[in-house]
Simulated scan of single mutants.
Amino acid sequence: MNILLIGEYSRLHNSLKEGLIKLGHNVILVGTEDGFKQFPVDYNYGASFFSRSKLKSFSILINRLTSLNLPQIESAIRFYRLLPKLKEFDTVQLINENSIKTNSTLEIWLLKKIIKNNKKIFLLSCGIDHLSVKYAYDKKFKYSILTPYHENQNLKDYYKFILLKLQRPAIKLHDFIFKHINGVLASDIDYHLPLLNHPKYLGLIPNPINYNKIEFIPLSITNKIIIFHGVNSQNYIKKGNVFFDEALEIIKNKFPDKVKVIRTEDIPYNDYIKVYDACHILLDQVYAYDQGYNALEAMAKGKVVFTGAEQEWLDYYNIEADTVAINALPDANKISAKLEWLILNPENILNISSNARAFIEKEHDYITIAQKYLEVWKH
């Protein structure tokens, strides 16, 4: 089968591609490398000219004066130039509803060409799309990435990009995509719940993890327990990192001789995954029901990860709380209490570490997951 994957987000499509190739299929991945994370793609349509430091301020000024987003227009032009190479695929999968990273009008125009020149089109829900944002905006989650906005309307500018998904252009793009796709898939519980009972929903397929590329590092606690907190500054509020920082202050003051904290900010993906090799505990995100890619890869390495691990996730995989990952709640005191439990009971760190790796191998094996995609794409 010839397969085209459009867009990249947290290395999901790279891992899926690796699984599909193992199963004997031809796969082309086009994308933007996801900003500073620099994920590999076969063809890159990300804005490069207007991303240069000397032109960034110019493009921002033009956007303020005219509402024109020059990087988005550049992405559209670069994608358009790739169109001759993006034909006659059996299956095309979009990483989300804005996979080309341009404005809604241009996105629709370019997607029409993709739809015309290929056989089947599928959508993956694994990021900020209309339905998941509306579900969160309507407070159907007990907490979500929109919780800080609900609690503080002064954050409206910070949430501008997300809230755009509720406005007419994004809704028009959403309606167009759902009219033409063969189906939509969710990558985890956070996207599964908003899609339940939708007529085009084909189900949840867990994130594929190529754990053969991720060395399991058996943990040894001989001195201090190392806690890693890697921050993406753009998502600091949405991910709830403030609760981790507050919890870490509590822990550092309470156990100065027992813990070492490593904190990074906005480092490339390949550097990020190396920096946390030495840690025992990794702090990922708060406002989630399930794990994203960073958490899953850390779990594959055998780290004890504080992340989304809500009851809905426990029920879906039929596992017990605090045995595979730690559910990080939006409460610094509760997070610090869980950290203290681990610090005072280091055997729990070792048990969760081995359980985490076993869970990834069982539920997120990239070849098994690729096979599940193939089965659904027959729809």
Rank of each mutant, 00 (worst) to 15 (best):
A170D: 09
K142P: 05
I114Y: 04
Q285G: 06
T32V: 12
E8L: 10
I28M: 15
I227W: 04
L350H: 03
S336W: 11
I281F: 05
E312V: 11
N117F: 11
N210D: 15
H280W: 06
D245T: 15
I349D: 01
E249Y: 00
K165Q: 04
G203Y: 07
I62L: 08
H364G: 01
H379N: 13
T147L: 02
N294W: 02
G203I: 10
D138S: 06
E375G: 03
T307V: 10
G35M: 10
G19W: 01
K134M: 12
N241S: 14
A298T: 04
Q311E: 08
F161D: 13
N118M: 01
K120E: 07
D331Q: 10
F79P: 06
P40H: 09
E340C: 01
L193Y: 07
C126M: 06
Y191R: 01
S15C: 09
I121C: 05
N154Y: 04
K37Q: 12
F39Q: 00
K142E: 11
F36D: 01
I360N: 13
H280N: 06
N63E: 11
Y317M: 05
L166T: 04
E97L: 08
V261L: 03
Y272K: 04
L29C: 03
K224N: 13
Q371P: 01
D277I: 01
F89V: 12
K224Y: 12
L344K: 00
L124N: 13
K87I: 15
W109N: 09
L248F: 02
K258V: 01
P40F: 09
V324I: 14
